[in-house]
């Protein structure tokens, strides 16, 4: 402090001598030092008061009480300043935690797309914020069965991600029971209803493809209907299924549905982030999605997913407002 005081006195007395811009610049640099050393505003006023007292010893009596008054005022600024600094530090800690949590989520909820010889599978999932509220889970039994769960937590960010890890572990404990979509939804519904607080809801579309027999069975818990493109008829069918969102009622039932997939048929599962054009409600999202699929039906399932994302992003002027997830199965 003593050193700072004499430095300040020197800078001030130089300035009082010729009032040059250079001295003000030196003062500015010196201020940086004061801030770095955490010198509070009231201390600065005191340093100034003492420096003035030394430079103009004959004026001490007159203006010193005014400085004391200013010190009193600045004590409060000092308090606000220190609180601000401590809040900044807390914020930095939060951001660090958030970063770690995001990484854990990425590892925990990493979806591995199975590579099967007889069917073509593609997937894209882009979070709106740092944490993804959508999640896709694949299960398969050799080349016989492939099942896929496409989920969307109502809500975003950390709470959604926490809830999602529960959904994932629920799905993993199903083992061999995964072939019956309505049963799967009933089980996961109970897991969520018991374990997550009442404000948390999850929508899920669950489909299971019997690869040998080309039968696609599905059930839905309040999820965006999937699309079935029939290559033979050149038409789209909406795969609607009745069922409440997961986590609402413990005894919810989910209807079982099945369709037969013919050669070159396409099934498109997605979250509402794909179909809800919030910034362009004038557009018919389903029409846009179906025509994009028809135009690009010959590319691989993964390429088709990428095209859907790129094109929709472009149509919405890069202003997506939700997590965006599409899963495509080509028979």
């Amino acid at each position: 402090m003593k050193q700072l005081e004499s430095q300040y006195e020197k800078i001030l007395s130089d300035y009082m001598f010729d009032q040059s811009e250079k001295n003000l610049y030196i003062a500015q640099n010196f201020t940086r030092q004061l801030i770095q050393k955490n010198i509070s505003p009231e201390d600065v006023v005191n340093i100034h008061k003492n420096a003035v007292g030394k430079i103009f010893p004959d004026r001490v009596g007159e203006d010193q009480p005014a400085y004391d008054f200013l010190i009193e005022v600045m004590v409060h600024y000092g308090m606000a300043h220190r609180e601000h600094q401590s809040l900044l530090q807390i914020q930095a800690e939060y951001e660090m935690e958030m970063k770690i949590a995001t990484n854990i989520q990425k590892t925990l909820l990493k979806t591995v797309v199975p590579q099967l010889s007889s069917i073509d599978i593609g997937m894209i999932s882009i979070p709106f914020r740092k944490m993804n509220g959508d999640y896709v889970h694949f299960l398969h039994d050799r080349e016989d069965y492939l099942s896929v769960a496409v989920t969307d937590v109502v809500g975003k960010g950390v709470p959604a991600a926490l809830c999602m890890s529960m959904v994932k572990y629920g799905l993993e404990t199903l083992e061999y029971a995964y072939k019956d979509p309505s049963y799967v939804l009933e089980v996961i519904n109970r897991v969520i209803e018991k374990g997550v607080d009442d404000s948390m809801f999850v929508s899920m579309f669950y489909g299971c493809l019997d690869i040998q027999n080309s039968i696609f069975s599905y059930a839905s818990a309040g999820h965006e209907p999937a699309l079935h493109y029939s290559a033979k008829q050149g038409k789209f069918f909406s795969l609607e299924a009745k069922g409440l969102l997961l986590g609402v009622l413990s005894e919810s039932k989910y209807s079982y549905n099945e369709i037969f997939l013919e050669d070159k048929d396409i099934v498109v599962m997605m979250t509402d982030g794909v179909t809800e054009f919030r910034s362009r409600e004038d557009l018919n999202s389903r029409e846009i999605i179906t025509s994009l699929i028809v135009e690009n039906k010959h590319v691989s399932a993964q390429q088709l997913c990428n095209i859907l994302y790129k094109q929709i992003e472009k149509i919405l002027d890069f202003k997506l407002s939700d997590d965006f997830t599409v899963v495509i199965i080509k028979n």
């Binding site: 004590v75 409060h76 000092g78 308090m79 606000a80 300043h81 220190r82 609180e83 809040l87 807390i90």
Partner: peptide, 19 residues
């Protein structure tokens, strides 16, 4: 910090603690 009724003025008990 941030809890006190001071509304970000740095006063309240955290302020006393620092002073």
């Amino acid at each position: 910090d941030g809890y006190s009724t001071s509304g970000g003025l740095g006063a309240g008990l955290p302020g006393v603690n620092r002073l």
